[in-house]
Nucleic acid binder design. Structure first.
Length: 280
RNA sequence: UUUGCCAUGAAUCUUU
């Protein structure tokens, strides 16, 4: 089924889910049995188009075909349930997985933290962090980015910072995304200068800010009325060869419009067109 | 050749 799976994946990546489903039927009519990878791929594809009903139907299908789900099956479904804010169902699946004796791996834990974090269940996530440690699964930069931004969205910025400070000297668990998560959390709490301090620390530690990092710090600054400072970061970003995207421009244009900076707004709109970032 | 095909993180606006 490997060949069919690759073809299905190809269609899935192009968003051609109906073609993918046709291949799925076609392989069966040729007597090739789909395997767990086939199902995982299709479930992920359906989840990406928010068709959770169909995704769950396939999950039940595979079980009735006696195809054993794997940890990937569960992280795929939990991921999409989380993104659809169906945390309770995500948590049910987590329990089902445990009941089946399937060991959660790093990605599964990260996915679950993300689902819990989105819905504000940061305390539940902290409990599971302990279980993860007991399981001998080591957190990575994804884990801390998820936990830190979840804490930030739950307005627990002190906890976010404490967590970050606790792990930032360990190798391999902090990267530009982890820093950006913290910078955003602090920025949204209104501590502009502290956000800037971490932004500078990030650069000093050799983590090159990317378009998301710059957009985040710019947003923090301009929302606090620090238009000049925000624009200075925009210039730094361009000079350092980091291309702004539609979100960067959107952030600046909103801010400029608010304070009536018509000239700068116009020049940004031009700049935007020149860069092929269509305004929306 | 413990082969190959599948899953996770950060930014703006909009919103219930």
């Amino acid at each position: 089924p490997g060949l069919f799976n690759s073809v299905i994946k190809g269609f899935a990546m192009e968003g051609r889910s109906d073609d993918a489903m046709k291949v799925f039927l076609e392989m069966q009519s040729q007597g090739v049995q789909p395997n767990v990878v086939t199902y995982n791929t299709l479930i992920d594809m359906l989840g990406k188009k928010d068709d959770l009903t169909e995704a769950l139907r396939l999950y039940h299908d595979m079980k009735s075909m006696n195809i054993e789900p794997t940890v990937i099956t569960f992280s795929t479904i939990i991921n999409h349930l989380g993104k659809s804010n169906l945390v309770d169902q995500a948590y049910e699946l987590w329990k089902e997985m445990m009941a089946l004796g399937i060991r959660p791996n790093l990605i599964l834990y990260n996915t679950l933290f993300k689902a819990l974090g989105r819905s504000g269940h940061v305390d539940a996530a902290s409990m599971i962090v302990k279980q993860m440690a007991n399981d001998g699964v080591n957190p990575d930069a994804f884990t801390f980015s998820i936990l830190i931004s979840s804490l930030g969205k739950a307005r627990k910025v002190r906890a976010a910072k404490a967590l970050f400070e606790r792990v930032k000297d360990k190798p391999g668990v902090v990267d530009v995304v982890t820093y950006t998560s913290l910078i955003t959390a602090i920025g949204k709490s209104g501590k502009v200068y502290e956000a800037m301090r971490y932004f500078e620390e990030m650069k000093l530690r050799g983590h090159e800010p990317n378009v998301v990092s710059y957009s985040s710090i710019i947003d923090t600054l301009v929302k606090k009325g620090k238009i000049k400072e925000g624009y200075a970061y925009f210039q730094e970003m361009v000079q350092s060869g980091c291309d702004p995207n539609g979100i960067t421009f959107n952030t600046l244009i909103h801010a400029f419009a608010k304070v009536g900076e018509l000239k700068l707004t116009k020049s940004l709109l031009k700049d935007m067109e020149a860069r092929g970032c269509g305004p929306d």
